[in-house]
């Protein structure tokens, strides 16, 4: 267990070393938060309530999604594992006396925590100062939000880990990963809140694993999750366990394949 905690800590420290890079990222997140907020405000000014949200909810959503973008890795094509499989460096990783999946989870978690520390607060703070952002004050609500974010993070890692493993078979994970990013950008509700998508498409979107990455934690924070916190927790746990288990199985298959190939 200690080796994984050390991996998390060192990966976090590496992320924190590039502070100006994170500042540039936070700046861009803030700009995009403003663009999304203006678009949603234009919509809500015409129709004051959509899917149980008022204008303040929508604006809060715009800035929160931009704040969560980096830690949740929505724009990340895969994990750092993908390129290592492509270049063959993964052979070294397979030698390490650690559990392969947990090792990569630890490294990615360090990155996510760093992103959360440096890139989540600035866009939300900026929005709160200049836009009608409304955040709850109840500590319980924030705790529930944090738990849902943790589950959302595990879903995101599970998806990206699977995409990385694909490189064992396709030799180049980039094509697969770019499709995953395009899907994830929309299905996670980054471009438009999933709760305003009408009809069957909206229903489908609310059930894909991406819904648990940002939309549901924010629903929980705003207190508008249909089915309550319990549903969000069950949904997040279900997808996280399923994806991580699939990743574990695929790791075993891949490991077998690498041995057969003889490196």
């Amino acid at each position: 267990m200690r080796v994984y905690l050390t991996a998390v800590r060192l990966s976090l420290r590496r992320y924190l070393a590039y502070r100006s890079s994170a500042a540039a990222g936070a700046f861009t997140n803030t700009v995009f938060g403003c663009i999304r907020a203006f678009v949603l405000m234009a919509l809500w000014k015409q129709k004051p309530e959509i899917g149980g949200w008022d204008l303040a909810d929508a604006v809060t959503y715009a800035f929160l999604t931009q704040g969560l973008l980096a830690p949740m890795g929505v724009f990340m094509t895969s994990t750092e594992l993908g390129p290592r499989i492509r270049t063959g460096d993964v052979a070294v990783d397979l030698y390490r006396p650690v559990d392969f999946q947990t090792w990569w989870l630890s490294l990615d978690l360090g990155r996510a925590l760093g992103g959360g520390l440096l890139r989540t607060v600035p866009p939300v703070l900026f929005g709160a100062l200049l836009f009608p952002v409304r955040l709850p004050s109840s500590p319980l609500r924030w705790t529930e939000f944090a738990v849902c974010c943790a589950l959302g993070y595990l879903i995101s890692f599970g998806l990206r880990y699977l995409a990385s493993l694909a490189a064992f078979w396709t030799m180049d994970e980039r094509g697969m990963s770019s499709i995953l990013v395009a899907l994830g950008m929309f299905c996670s509700g980054l471009i438009i809140p999933l709760s305003v998508v009408p009809g069957a498409l909206g229903t489908v979107l609310l059930h894909t694993p991406w819904a648990g990455i940002m939309q549901m934690p924010i629903n929980v924070l705003l207190g508008t999750q249909s089915g309550g916190v319990g549903y969000a927790l069950a949904f997040g746990t279900f997808w996280a366990v399923l994806l991580l288990a699939a990743g574990r199985m695929l790791t075993d298959v891949a490991r077998h394949k690498v041995v057969v190939q003889g490196g």
Partner: peptide
């Protein structure tokens, strides 16, 4: 390392 600002 401020390249991401360009994206804005």
């Amino acid at each position: 390392d401020a390249q991401e600002v360009a994206n804005s």
